[in-house]
């Protein structure tokens, strides 16, 4: 018997299986949900001092980052640990299909998490600005996809323990140096310059522009282009890596 059905069917099957298996796993709950909630609570304080337009997009951006990267990491690392990744390698699943399928859970978590954080922000502040929803939406979708694919890449390349460490380095440098937690005005010049190396800068400014019609580091069009390029590069590298994992 040969394989029937297209790549889409395989991608969806893997995605649904991942959601069923991993949505309630400890790292997903703690990093993807509890941690962002804590950050949101903390940021509520600073919102009053620093201004909502600075803080609310940052907290949405951090939520997106943690939600999407934790889900994708679990979807790859847990399967490496259980041995099920071996089975996947023997299935007729293409390398691009594997990357997309493994990213989908994280994308959904990123988008959902950002939405939830938005609702929380609304509850805390009593209103939500959404002046340019298309930019906001682009930021959420591109950002979740980029973070999720990045996490798949890291989890495919490193063993599960290393992957957690590497992802935490990436996450926390994005929080502290990546233009999310600290507004540009508060950062020393050299650190503010460093921020441009992190995708979070562009994604946060996209959200900011979408909500408040203003930006802090980078103008929205540049942000859009840079995010799209970073996304394409990440997907490309993840795909090459998946090929290497599947046919070493």
């Amino acid at each position: 018997m040969s394989v029937r059905g297209g790549g889409l069917q395989r991608v969806v099957a893997i995605f649904i299986k991942d959601l069923k298996s991993y949505y309630s796993k400890a790292p997903v709950i703690s990093w993807g949900i509890l941690f962002p909630l804590t950050v949101i609570a903390l940021l509520d304080l600073s919102a009053r001092m620093l201004g909502e337009y600075r803080v609310v997009p940052a907290m949405l951006s951090i939520t997106m980052l943690f939600a999407s990267t934790s889900m994708s990491q679990v979807a790859v690392s847990f399967e490496k640990l259980s041995g099920a990744m071996q089975r996947v390698l023997y299935m007729p699943v293409g390398s691009a299909e594997l990357v997309v399928a493994k990213s989908l859970g994280g994308i959904i978590y990123g988008i959902g998490g950002t939405g939830l954080a938005g609702i929380l922000a609304y509850i805390m502040t009593g209103h939500v600005a959404m002046i340019r929803p298309a930019y906001f939406l682009a930021g959420v979708v591109l950002g979740s996809t980029l973070y999720s694919a990045l996490s798949v890449l890291v989890s495919l390349y490193y063993n599960p323990v290393q992957a957690v460490a590497v992802l935490n380095i990436i996450r926390f440098s994005m929080i502290f140096l990546g233009g999310t937690l600290f507004p540009k005005a508060l950062l020393p010049r050299i650190l503010a310059g460093l921020a441009y190396f992190f995708p979070s800068v562009y994604i946060t400014d996209l959200l900011r522009f979408g909500m408040y019609n203003t930006w802090e580091y980078v103008d929205p069009l540049t942000s859009l282009i840079v995010t799209a390029i970073l996304l394409a590069a990440t997907l490309y590298i993840a795909h090459r890596l998946a090929l290497k994992v599947m046919l070493p």
Binding site: M1, R4, K20, E79, G83, A84, Q86, M91
Partner: peptide
Amino acid sequence: LPSLFPELTVRENLLFIARVYGI
């Protein structure tokens, strides 16, 4: 080594595999 998905039941595992193979 054992290599099905530990979180799924035997039946769910088989159904998942059937979907991947397009059965």
